[in-house]
Simulated assay, not measured.
Amino acid sequence: MDIQSRNLNIAVIGAGGKMGFRITDNLRKIQQYLLFLCEQADAGKERLAANGLQATPAEEALSQADFVILAVPDAQIGMVSKSIYDLLRIDSTVILLDPAAAYAQQVVMRTDCTYVVTHPCHPALFDYQDTPEARKDIFGGIAAKQDIVMALHQGKEELYDAAERICMDMFAPVVKCHRITVEQMALLEPAAAEVVAAAAACLMKEAMDEVIKLGVPPEAARSFMLGHIQIPLAIAFNHVNPFSDAAQIAIEYGYEHIFKPDWKKVFTKESLDEVLRKMLHLEQA
């Protein structure tokens, strides 16, 4: 199909959900896109209606869709991909918003369709944002500049190229789309971004709570910790200065008393498979 010279029909499954509506709100600004919004939940339908939008039955939407965006929770991807299997048009492209189900081989795929996976990088901590609105947009997709990552899971290169444009539009404003593999995306999330970085963020919050319990005034503790979180991140990621000799000793002490020596095993296939089974609720399957 000549995707560059005509309008594109896009079905958003879960369009009234939190992520689905953010995507819908961006895509409906693009004149080239004809959107079909699919939503089963009453709350989602109400959100669409409150914004002057109407839900379309999946059968009707998918019979016309060139591209199908699955804006549903990770644990539902397997079920939803199976439910739409017979409804997809030949040569349609399915866009997944997270690598978990694809990496865990939970996506029910048609051989005559293309499947891509994308995920926002979110606005980077030390990147400058131009406007006050952008600086408040922590998650991205509204005003803050961000990058995205994207992978071709199965299918045609020319359809991947069109999907890339759609993905950049739905997470706009996007500076760059980094093409990687599904496996590499899973190493980034959940392994690096959630198992490690999100756990570390929660650990830092618990550290602040602990010193408050020990008598440090809450306002002072929050101010001190947020400032001292930013500095080591800048040193570690941007190399603005080396850690002082004393700080390096404290860091080594922290590694010894807080982290397990073999913590990097979270990046092994065995560990990644294990955490994704838990995230996708496959342990009970």
Rank of each mutant, 00 (worst) to 15 (best):
E194N: 11
C177L: 15
H153N: 12
T118A: 15
E189F: 04
A100G: 11
H281A: 06
K156A: 13
R277F: 03
V240K: 02
S223C: 01
C177I: 13
P123W: 08
N26K: 03
V108C: 05
P218E: 11
A234K: 02
H228E: 03
K29N: 12
L187M: 15
D273H: 15
A102V: 11
A220N: 09
H239Q: 14
E283A: 00
A162L: 10
H119S: 14
V12G: 00
L35N: 05
V240P: 01
A58L: 15
P73Y: 07
L34D: 13
L187K: 15
A250K: 01
N51H: 14
A11E: 00
G44H: 07
L125G: 00
E59F: 09
K18L: 12
Q184E: 15
K82H: 10
Y115W: 03
I148R: 09
E206M: 14
Q154A: 07
Q129L: 12
D130E: 15
A201F: 13
M1R: 11
I69M: 13
V107T: 03
A191G: 12
R22D: 03
A41N: 12
C121S: 11
H228K: 01
V94C: 04
E210K: 12
D66A: 13
K265C: 07
D2G: 14
D147M: 09
M279E: 13
P73K: 05
F21W: 07
I229R: 01
P132G: 07
V195T: 15
E60T: 11
D245L: 00
P261E: 07
D112N: 09
C121Y: 00
E183G: 14
Y85A: 04
T131S: 15
Q154F: 03
I77T: 08
I249T: 03
E157C: 05
I251Y: 03
K260P: 02
Q106Y: 05
A200M: 14
I138T: 06
A285E: 10
L53N: 12
D98N: 15
A11Q: 00
L62N: 10
S83K: 13
C113R: 01
K260I: 03
P217R: 07
F67L: 15
D127W: 06
H153D: 13
L87C: 04
I212E: 06
V195P: 05
T56D: 05
P123S: 12
S83Y: 10
F224I: 02
Y160G: 09
L152E: 04
F243D: 00
F67E: 12
Q230M: 10
I13N: 02
P123T: 10
F259E: 02
Q284E: 08
F171E: 11
V195N: 14
L282T: 06
L203S: 13
P242K: 07
D161Y: 11
L70N: 10
D273C: 14
L282N: 06
A50V: 01
R179N: 14
A134W: 10
V196G: 04
P123R: 10
D147F: 05
S81Y: 02
I138E: 05
K260G: 05
D127C: 03
H122P: 01
D25N: 08
